[in-house]
Simulated scan of single mutants.
Amino acid sequence: MKRFFIAISISSIFISIPTLAAPVSVSFHNLGAVPMTVSKLSTCAALYPELTSVAPKSTSSVSTADCGTSITAVHVGYSMGLKNCTFHISVTYKNPPMFLKSGGWIPNYSVEQSGGARCKIESQAFSGIESGAFKAVFSMK
Rank of each mutant, 00 (worst) to 15 (best):
E50W: 09
S53C: 05
W105G: 02
V137P: 00
S25C: 05
P35N: 03
V74E: 02
S102K: 13
M98N: 02
P97D: 09
L82W: 09
E50G: 08
S70T: 12
I89F: 06
V74L: 08
V111E: 14
F14G: 12
L51A: 02
H88I: 11
K120E: 09
S60F: 13
V111F: 13
S90K: 13
H75R: 15
A45L: 04
I129K: 13
F134R: 03
F126L: 02
L41A: 11
S9R: 01
I106P: 01
L47S: 05
G77Q: 08
P18L: 07
T19M: 12
K94W: 04
S42Q: 13
Y109W: 12
V111P: 14
A22S: 07
V137D: 10
H88S: 09
P49A: 10
I15R: 12
N108H: 14
Y93M: 07
A7H: 01
Y48K: 13
A7V: 13
P18T: 00
S127M: 03
I17Q: 13
S90Y: 08
M36F: 08
C67R: 12
G81V: 01
S63W: 04
V24G: 03
Q124P: 01
N108F: 10
P49V: 07
M80H: 01
T92F: 07
C67Q: 05
C44V: 04
Y78L: 04
P35Q: 08
G103L: 11
K120R: 12
S9W: 11
T72L: 02
T59Q: 14
A133M: 06
F28D: 03
S63Q: 04
I89T: 07
P97K: 15
C119Q: 00
G68V: 06
L51C: 02
W105C: 03
V91G: 06
H88V: 11
V74N: 08
W105A: 01
I6A: 07
V34K: 15
V76T: 09
G81A: 08
I89G: 03
L47P: 06
I6N: 00
F5R: 13
T72N: 10
T86Y: 09
A7C: 11
S131I: 15
I17S: 00
T37W: 00
T92I: 11
